[in-house]
Amino acid sequence: MSREMTKDHDYRTTHALAIETSAALGGVCLGVGGVVIATRTFSGPRRHATELVPKIHDLCATHGVAPGDIQEVYVSAGPGSFTGLRIGISVARMIALVNGARLVAIPTLEVIAQNALDDRTAGADAASGSQRPPSEDPDATGKATKEPTQPTADASPSAAVAPSPPNALPDPATPPPRVVVILDAKRSNVYAGVFELADRSSWLAGRYQPITAPAEIAPARLFASVQRPCAVLGEGIRQHMTAVNQSELDILPYSTFAPRAETVFRLGFEKARRGEFTPARDLVPHYIRLPEAEEKWNQKSPAGG
């Protein structure tokens, strides 16, 4: 464990901010030495532009922390709302510019994945179908209207590894060993990441660790490739209910879908102690996708024009 730690003798007094502005409802968290002091959640959805800096000011003023004391900033870097991500990252980069604060970019899907730990009993309820999120998927009716595009067992290499359902979790109180986090990427796709609960022997025990890089993918293809047992969470479930239902994965409750600033703080502090800082100039949102105009341009002139 100590081998992986950076030589950082005064981290116990390090003041840090964690910023979460990737999703509709944002928040910010202040802590010292890896311990959360307080968190502020914005008053409503899409308030990042007007509320982020005032909440940071309020948090620091309330707890007697001067802006100059902020030595580290952990920021949820996407995928998510492009504008929201840029607001959070703009704040982080400016604090770095003035204070020389060190920045840590936290993958947003990894932040959401950790929610599977906090709500595992609720998750068991959801798995039984008692707590389905509101669906925005027009095809998400009880009976499928057309033949699903899900690949057959023969076509999916992972299907051979994982026996076909049941996808039953061993114990409702036990967190799922594997989760897939999805966000809607439009055009019938999702942004997705697959995570595994770290083994008890690992110093990362109690953390969901990524086993795939965040990517844009068709949900049916994604679900066919993940090893069971596995649970699914994230805002994308609402837009892709048909594919989610067909996957027969356990759905974690709606309350686990949103990324939380405290989790950004926890993950950020851990990554900071492992020395996983991002130079301010290199910290940009993890967009995954090119701007639409650029995609269209590339399609017109594949040589790169």
Binding site: V53, P67, S90, V91, M94, L97
Partner: peptide
Amino acid sequence: TAAKTLSW
């Protein structure tokens, strides 16, 4: 956002 952060 940058200006607000600098101001703070």
